[in-house]
Amino acid sequence: MEILLSALTGLLYAGGVYLILRRSILKFIIGIIFMSNATNLLVFLSAGIVPGQPAFVDDTMKDAELMADPLPQALVLTAIVIGFGIVVFTIALKYKFFKTTSTDDQDQLTNTDA
């Protein structure tokens, strides 16, 4: 399972990098979403995977060794929340930019350089 998820992480990074290098701003944003999901998976995998066990203890849990590491899950949750906010902001920014300039082409973004 870990190998599969690692491969998926790599695939998502590759797709994200490819999309980021495209000229369209919208594709760039989708690339960022890909990469942020890949990063979340990476953090999630960092503690290894424990199959079928929750990350918190109740009275029935006797052995803490069996438990999944709760910290990466908490980190991923935080990262997802932050990613959610950021993606919404970038989409709003792109929308506003498209309305003022009616372009989606990154090569047109030359006004503030040099």
């Binding site: 980021i20 701003i25 760039f28 960022i32 990469m35 942020s36 990063t39 950021i86 970038t90 920014l93 792109k94 506003k96 930019f97 003022t100 300039t101 973004l109 006004n111 503030t112």
Partner: peptide
């Protein structure tokens, strides 16, 4: 939300998002 600001904002956002990731 002037035109230049949105453009500068996109450039600022681009590299800083990659940094965060």
């Amino acid at each position: 939300a002037k035109k230049d600001q949105l453009e500068g904002g996109i450039k600022y956002m681009t590299l800083n998002l990659i940094a965060s990731l």
